[in-house]
Amino acid sequence: MSKRRVIPGFGLSMGFTITYLSLIILIPLAALFLKAARLSGAEWWAILTTPQVIAAAKLTFGASAAAATVSTVFGLLVTWVLVRYQFPGRKFLDAMVDLPFALPTAVAGITLTAIYAPNGWIGEYLAKWGIEAAYSPLGVFIALTFIGFPFVVRTLQPVMEDFGSEYEEAAATLGAGRWTVFWRVIFPMFIPALITGFTLAFARAIGEYGSVIFISGNLPLKTEILPLLVVGQLEQFKYEAAAVIAAAMLMASFALLFLINLLQRRLNWQNH
């Protein structure tokens, strides 16, 4: 034993961590890659470059990024209202934010479709303006915004609650206007939490299936999402092809998340 650690129990807790992570994450993912590895590189390429897969990838990643962006902007606003102001019904609103977590995604999808379909409450008015909400890429975006929203609020909320008013007061005494206080003092403090929230919402949106398939209409090359193509391959008993699409999705998501994490580190480092 060369070095004794100050905190005891490292061996036990580390062993447990590795076993646990292996069981719930590593082994299932390894199985996925093993299945996909049965096909050659050329076969991977052939599957991943079909027009359907390319169109679905564009929609999935594009709509997920757009939805996560909107969730981030409005998540900031909602969190601000929930944390900074006292008003009747605040606790109730606060609890409502979690509903997209709790609702089965299929229920969310069916409900959203019912509302945004051309004969639904909102869809009816949108249709008059010539806007197709359900059964279009916009529908995919709506569903992904719904399921991603709580991630932003819940990551930002604790940061904002810990953030006392002393910085704002100090800035104000130094002569900063309200706008300057917000942009130069408050907002930069929230950026790391906002990025985390964005990342979570984005990652969740990429894999989302249940709510999207009801509202998207699933038209080939137009509104098919990648997870639907995975299911489509499974329906044809093409396990390997399904695994290839899933593995590619996973690698793309991992690369994106990794980049976002890097960006966040840089920002954190600049802030200090």
Partner: peptide, 8 residues
């Protein structure tokens, strides 16, 4: 072309 929705 006349099919607006393809459910699963």
């Amino acid at each position: 072309q006349n099919v607006p929705v393809l459910d699963t």
